[in-house]
Design a protein around this nucleic acid. Structure first.
Lengths: 328, 328
DNA sequence: TCGGTTGCTGAGATCGGTTGCATTCACCAT
DNA sequence: ATGGTGAATGCAACCGATCTCAGCAACCGA
């Protein structure tokens, strides 16, 4: 148990430390026989290499930060979950950094990861974080951005096709017979929120009906109030994201509107939680797991050849119980 | 930008590295004048100490692992959120480790944190992880356990008073006029799940009515089916936790039962998400934020004097819209 | 004036690995 | 027998800090 270092293993195995080091990190440089012997000794002693010492000398570690504004938001939670896995498979250790959308905190994480010799990082930015500002940092050059497009900069990005997602929602709703289809916006400021909104405007036939969901905490209260006050209400609503959809449905219900009987609602994100909602939420699913592993691949690619890829994934429709034909 | 080390600063400031080191980590040991000069130079160069090198030499770092089975579960997400903050305030860097309830993964994290010289760790165990097994690890001795009691071992713990929580739920429901109050169990195996269940049995007047919520993914389907099939149904249900409550309400709704009109439901956890549920969930709130900071304090205390504290926090009732008087 | 403190700083070993270079040795062609 | 080659390993400097120990100057009382 007591302090196992590479020297202990080396002595026990009767070789020099450098040989032990090579046995672990460059196996092919050591004679098979020697290597196996070393590994056996290491195993017996319960030895593992110190990532700290390795990182210090190599000037590169396996720590990969995932920077998110709010882990309490299930979208980020699911992202974190799938990314830990994806990172683990590739030999990285994901470090979750929660910023609360604060620039100062974000900056702090960036310099911290820099000094931990993180090879790269993944960031799912909130509204208030300005990517360009982040690029000021040395470490900013090694970031991959999730769920936000920023083609002008040399920053790799992964997003899903918002327009197609909204289109899927429209198709579904129209096929059910809906004609007046409203939209509840999310927090404005993010590119995706903007993209989805734009897509809605483009695809809405006739006059668009936009309800503002208000700030995050109100969670749809305002949209529901707006809805209730309308004379000619839409028969279906597309929400900017699942959390907003939850809030809206809840607020609508407290005003006596039933979903989907009185109004259909479709969300956007495809959170697992949606399946447990009342009613189970029909939603446009983002391939969150794919986004995670692709982000890592893009980061590795950029590290290798400096290229900044921009991947756009396709969403898919998840039909559950929050949509039905319009009231006749 | 280029490689800033303590030696660079030392040379620039015209002193020896050890003086720079002291200026940072033991300011009182350096003459004020010298110290200020060094700090000024460091500032100018934009120098910060390498946490890696520090940890390596000191044999103690500021990385603190928070080990949770599933970050997708909002309870753990909220815990993670508040703990990052609490940890940050105290100068620690929280590392989120997601185990999926897998013993092997957990073990991996433990040895990893050991070799990162983490001073201690916080674990919110899932069913399948056996604390005693964890104690086998060197690092196991430095863990604080959240939401699970285990008084026999010398392991610090933080929990909330499950019994009192269930009692609050009962009081609320009874004051609304409910007499037949059922219970939907969570995943069995955790201590808290057991405690809540026991408390329910103790406090149920008359015959206890227990519905099994089934495995995690089914999320209350089974309980709802059970409920529907009953001849003499309870008028209110206490759920083992909020997620179960969500699942049950959703499943109940899909069978045509309305909450709270047909049956009242109260959850347990106090998730922020509950406020957006349909209907907004009445629930027993756990002081999650407190749990986080107390866990850290307990860990520090144990490191200091070896004592293993056991803190039990008091829950509180959050009345929202999922409860009402029974059908008359 | 001198031994004894006290306060501050420098020297250098050390933490646990990595890596370029030197060394050793077997093997092969000449 | 000689020199060349390549594989396997040892040697030692190095990554960026910490920390013990020693040195040095200033100051104190006798």
């Amino acid at each position: 148990m007591a302090d196992l270092s590479i020297d202990v293993v080396a002595k026990e195995a009767g070789v020099h430390r450098s040989t032990v080091s090579r046995a672990f990190s460059r196996p092919e440089a050591v004679k098979a026989e020697t290597r196996e012997h070393i590994m056996r000794v290491a195993e017996k002693l319960g030895y593992t290499m110190s990532p700290l010492a390795q990182a210090l000398r190599r000037k590169t570690s396996t720590f990969v930060p995932l920077i998110v504004p709010d882990i309490t938001n299930p979208f980020f939670a699911e992202l974190a979950k799938t990314m830990t896995e994806a990172a683990g498979e590739r030999g990285y250790q994901l470090m979750l950094c929660v910023t609360n959308g604060d620039e100062v905190q974000t900056a702090g994480y960036l310099t911290a990861m820099q000094s931990l010799y993180a090879p790269f990082g993944i960031i799912a930015p909130s509204t208030r974080v300005d990517i360009d500002a982040l690029m000021q940092f040395d470490f900013g050059q090694r970031l991959v951005v999730i769920d936000r497009v920023d083609h002008q900069a040399g920053v790799p990005t992964v997003t899903v096709d918002s327009r197609r997602g909204i289109e899927l929602a429209f198709e579904h709703l129209r096929s059910l017979g809906h004609r007046r289809i409203g939209y509840v916006s999310g927090i404005s400021g993010t590119h995706t929120a903007q993209d989805r909104m734009d897509a809605y405007h483009d695809l809405a036939e006739g006059e668009p009906i936009v309800l503002d969901s208000g700030a995050d905490t109100e969670a749809g209260e305002r949209a529901a109030a707006h809805f209730a006050a309308m004379a000619d209400r839409p028969t279906a609503i597309i929400a900017a994201n699942d959390m907003v959809a939850f809030g809206v449905i809840s607020a609508l219900a407290s005003r006596g509107f039933r979903v989907p009987e009185d109004v259909s609602v479709v969300g956007f994100d495809g959170l697992a939680l949606g399946a447990r909602f009342n009613p189970a939420l029909t939603t446009v699913r983002q391939p969150i797991a794919d986004m995670g592993s692709i982000a890592i691949e893009l980061a590795e690619k950029k590290a290798a050849d400096g290229s900044a890829g921009h991947i756009v994934l396709q969403p898919e429709l998840l039909v559950r119980s929050s949509t039905a034909g319009p009231r006749t």
